[in-house]
């Protein structure tokens, strides 16, 4: 567990970010329809149009090409490698959330896959029955009680919220590996995670295409789907507002 001490050194750098988020991110207001709080809709829609263009011109064709050229087994290995390099960050965030079990499993997964999985290219841990662990600083902020804040669409990265955007920025610093490994090796991880995102873009191509290119309002669809799925992952049951099915007037339908 030699990356614990960099983790604590890093904490001091995180604190200003955390404090900032606590001050600025607020909960979703009670009167927002469907649990959506989007005061920056005008700017977000412009960013969405940009992202859609980027996907159409670059990401989608690149993902198609990558998946066609690279054999499936290699694609999976690159995905495992990228995921394994992210595990130390999962350990740090689990600790920050007080989730000792999650931190333990993520540590065990990292060690198992690094040693027995040929440096992370094979997912030996899952075969040994250690479940996948995934968390990030956005979730850490959620467990600390920080509100979701407004919806934000980020350039290149797509849907997010104020809380998750803060989380993404902080996560650039939560991976102890980035302090322990020198360049150019530290960029292998970045390369692998870009490649693994391309794999995902192609694997879920039908779903992504149906949201981006086949719906009447792709911005509204992407926003709704992101918020609902993110809240589900976090276990946040208070931000979604649902109608009671027995209060709906179904006469005539």
């Amino acid at each position: 567990m030699n990356y614990i001490s960099p983790a604590f050194r890093m904490l001091s750098r995180l604190l200003p970010f955390g404090a900032l988020a606590l001050v600025t991110a607020c909960a979703v207001p009670q009167d927002s329809p469907d649990g959506i709080y989007d005061p920056y809709e005008k700017q977000n829609r412009k960013m969405h149009a940009f992202n859609r263009g980027l996907d159409k011109a670059l990401v989608r064709p690149a993902a198609r090409g990558y998946s066609q050229v690279v054999p499936d087994e290699i694609e999976d290995s690159v995905g495992h490698f990228a995921q394994n390099l992210g595990q130390p960050s999962v350990v740090v965030n689990s600790l920050l959330q007080g989730d000792m079990k999650g931190a333990g499993v993520a540590t065990a997964r990292f060690l198992t896959n690094t040693v027995l999985g040929f440096g992370g290219f094979a997912d030996a841990a899952t075969e040994f029955g250690m479940p996948e662990q995934d968390t990030d600083f956005g979730e850490t902020l959620y467990t600390w009680g920080v509100g979701e804040g407004p919806y934000i669409e980020l350039p290149g990265l797509g849907p997010s919220t104020q809380r998750d955007t803060t989380g993404k920025i902080v996560d650039l610093f939560t991976n102890p590996l980035s302090y322990a490994v020198d360049s150019p090796e530290k960029y292998y991880g970045t390369g692998a995670s870009v490649a693994s995102r391309l794999s995902d873009r192609d694997r879920y191509s039908d779903t992504v295409d149906s949201i981006l290119y086949e719906s009447a309002d792709s911005y509204a669809q992407a926003r709704l789907i992101y918020l609902q799925n993110r809240r589900f992952d976090l276990g946040d049951e208070t931000s979604n507002r649902e109608v009671d099915p027995f209060e709906l007037d179904t006469k005539g339908f």
Partner: peptide
Amino acid sequence: GINLLLTERT
């Protein structure tokens, strides 16, 4: 966690 009816209402 994605409410399909809500996506269709959108």
